[in-house]
Amino acid sequence: MQKQRKWDAKKIISTIILFFCSIAFLLPFIWMLSTSLKIEADVFKYPIEWIPSRWNAASNYQEVWFGDHPFYLYYWNSIKVAVCTTLISVVVSSLAAYGFSKVRFPAGAWLFIIVLATYMVPPQASLVPQFILYRYLGLFDTHIGLILLGSFSVLGTFMLRQFFIGIHNDFIDAAKIDGAGHWRIFWRIALPIVRPAVATYAILRFIWTWNDYQNPLIFLRTDALYTIQLAMQKFTTINGSFYTLIMAAAVSAILPLLIVFILGQKHVIDGIALGGVKG
């Protein structure tokens, strides 16, 4: 059975064909990147100049980052919101996941069903009362409010709970006999074991928060608090037909995420695959 690995001609051909398909699939990204490097007059030149003949990258990106609507400010806002949301969400979800899987208490089963049931609620269905509540509590138009909105994730709790269940109860019982309480078991034994799952969830949560447009749109008003997605939309409205600038902004909005994704690629893809196959 085990033959030396040989190059398979059929496989090479389908790789080449699929490679061209993937390039076609990614053309919008390539177009975005190449346009962000051009001068305005060359944007709609036809046939399309994939490699710009006249470069204007420095001034385009300078205008986006340090112009009238400086992206560094919105970047900072987005980083703040995404990092805080991810941290709080990971802590809250893993605590709840441990409680729902490894602490045997009668109310747990019921409470878990309630938590799961809220997952069926489409987020937009509770938007209006959320908005009214936020006005009332003074959380409207604050970063704290926005962070709290993303911090209580049923999906995260469910996902991490699946992994905690996988830890053998003997581990926990042995620690208990040694006199460790649940708090110590959680920090010292359970959490380190499920660390890859926590990493997967953290990356996904970061990406989702970074990309979120709807919540910032509804819950933020002050320009200085805008996240990168809101800024992107505002920038597009203001700069109307300066397509090079808009594309430079789009590249800037996508790039950090792409880096996070490529660094954590395996985690993200495995996490999604796992969630999908288990249902």
Binding site: A96, V103, L111, T118, P129, L133, T157, W183
Partner: peptide, 23 residues
């Protein structure tokens, strides 16, 4: 102990999801 572990989550979704959807 169980309640303590799950209470931040419960409190959060009560305020942010359950109460608003009932409303």
């Amino acid at each position: 102990v169980g309640l303590l572990f799950v209470s931040p989550m419960l409190l959060g979704i009560s305020v942010i999801v359950l109460f608003p959807i009932v409303a």
